[in-house]
Simulated scan of single mutants.
Amino acid sequence: MPETENPPVRGLTVKQPWAWAITAGKNVENRSWKVPQKYIGATLLVHAGLGLIRDAFEDERILALPAMPPVLAAGAVLAVARLAGYHPEERGCCAPWGDPDVFHWQLEDVRPLPEPVKYTGALSLWKPSPALQQMAQAIR
């Protein structure tokens, strides 16, 4: 099936614990850059990068989520979501997840995978392997 018939599948690498937070209810991803228009509606693979943001483990938004697993996956795809849209931050919109002075990427229909799938991520929006794309389309 040509890629034009289905929205594209792309990966988005997110540092922990924010990647896990997406699987637990975080529906806004904060980025310093706009989403290219062609990716609105795309299926996103939420990938946990290898890095951690240590301060985030004490963030009140993270602490308000259900109990975090004792070990967070790294270097793995954790969920599939739809990139519904984005907008620049506007006076505290998208609470509690939207941060100031960034673009708020709106995530919908987040579906955590039963088990993390080991995979190497990348910066920006990256194109996953055909097998990973098929897996994402099957979950959607």
Rank of each mutant, 00 (worst) to 15 (best):
E89Y: 13
E58V: 04
R82E: 13
E58F: 05
D99I: 11
W97G: 09
Q133G: 10
L125F: 15
A42G: 03
F57Y: 06
S32G: 11
K38F: 13
V102E: 11
P17S: 06
G75Y: 12
G51R: 12
R111P: 01
Q134G: 14
P88Y: 09
E3A: 13
D55F: 03
V35C: 10
A21R: 10
K38L: 13
I62E: 13
A84R: 10
D99S: 14
P66D: 06
V71H: 02
G98F: 11
G25E: 03
M135K: 14
V46R: 11
T120G: 10
A122L: 05
A21F: 04
T23G: 09
I139N: 04
I22D: 00
L125Q: 08
K127G: 03
W20L: 06
R82G: 02
E115I: 09
R91V: 10
Q137I: 05
L78F: 04
V110M: 11
I40N: 05
R31D: 08
V110I: 12
C94V: 08
V80E: 02
K38G: 10
K127W: 05
K118S: 15
C94T: 08
L50E: 14
N6Y: 09
Q133L: 00
A42D: 09
V80Q: 01
L113K: 02
P8M: 15
P114C: 01
E115C: 08
G51K: 12
W20N: 05
E115G: 01
A95V: 08
F103Q: 13
Y86T: 02
T13K: 01
H104Y: 05
E108V: 00
V28D: 06
A73M: 00
H104L: 09
W97N: 13
Y39I: 12
I22C: 08
E90T: 15
